[in-house]
Design a protein around this nucleic acid. Sequence first.
DNA 1: TGCACTATTGATCAACTGATCAATAAATTT
DNA 2: AAATTTATTGATCAGTTGATCAATAGTGCA
Lengths: 219, 219
Amino acid sequence: MSTPARARASRKSPAERSAEIADAARGVALEQGLAAVTLRSIAARAGVAPALVAHYEPNMDALVASTFSTIVGAEIDEVARLIAAQPEPRRRLGTLLDTLLDGARDDVTVVWVEAWALGRRNDALAASVRDQMDAWQVVVQGVIEQGVAEAGFETDDAAATAWQLLGMIDGLNAQALVRWGDTGDRGSLIHRAVEGLLGLPRGALSAARSASGAGRTTR
Amino acid sequence: MSTPARARASRKSPAERSAEIADAARGVALEQGLAAVTLRSIAARAGVAPALVAHYEPNMDALVASTFSTIVGAEIDEVARLIAAQPEPRRRLGTLLDTLLDGARDDVTVVWVEAWALGRRNDALAASVRDQMDAWQVVVQGVIEQGVAEAGFETDDAAATAWQLLGMIDGLNAQALVRWGDTGDRGSLIHRAVEGLLGLPRGALSAARSASGAGRTTR
DNA sequence: TGCACTATTGATCAACTGATCAATAAATTT
DNA sequence: AAATTTATTGATCAGTTGATCAATAGTGCA
């Protein structure tokens, strides 16, 4: 009862082991942040010697970058699916805002914030961050363009408006991360801001939402 | 022509030396980010042995935290002064937005973003971050409340609206930090969003601004 | 069965971090 | 001038990080 020193890991196919390492990295990143994705922490979680992680990954910067992409990519896919399920632009937009601001993905927000910071010293990560931001922007721009075509959204530049919207969301989430506790309801006021951004009448988004029965009670 | 090994530092009063160390930390943080504020980097910049930095600071976490507070505190003071110089609420708000989004303080934005990330592992820093966010919020809330009283701003909850506004600003700046280059004009669209947030007619803020001759040409 | 391939590992490195402490040296006081 | 105080330092420690490499041990093939 002393050294819980990991037994030799069973031999697996490179594909399988590689996937396990990626999974371990994803888990550590979600639970403790991207900064905790180290050679040894991942090895420990995967039940493997540190050298094996190094064997499968060109370097840790790359693992951190791919881990970021995996996590954020999954988030984008998930939210994109939720949006696509909504039948109408205003409700799509409301779903987008409510989903991203409901606090259920704070672990992903941590990953985002750390990626912004770490990206300054990890080029591969910085590139991944830009890629995933672009991917988000495409999704949001799609919602806006459809809204312009079908639901009276007003904007000269859907692309720029999408960036603006994303920036607002990211900022509110990052803020909520720090302001634990007394963070009021992020997401209630943003509806007004977005209505202003898109030239919609006050209440247009909230109305579309409550009409769809998506109201949360408290938070 | 080999070892530029620092000569013994001249003896100074604790107050003076302490200030020099704080200055060195401020400089490093602004030029290379908070993560670069290390015992040795600060010692080198201050022209002093690493042990002396440790002698003057209880620990590095505290130095990082106080450095953050110094930098952000100065930013708040500066912007608060700029705002106070404006005679009217709409122009005050416009000045606030334009000043914070003109990209002239990106070095401070880096400090903010890194503080959000590092604060997760540095309690003293996390506390400083909360304090400075509160300080910002007070300033913004003041602008809003005056606008409600004098310039037709509409909001039920000036405090929450101030947080919303800050979140938007932080998010756009953080985003611009990463999206080097193709970051369109942050700050042009935000006027519409803020108008929506405060129940102002479209163009109310931009009009107040250009009327005051504060227009920037390009960026 | 024995050979070849390769997944896996322990040991080890260099580089960096924050921190401590006895020794040194410059002031100030006596 | 001597003693005292204290600013400053070098040396050193323990801890972390990413990375390399020869040695080990499963696995499948001949």
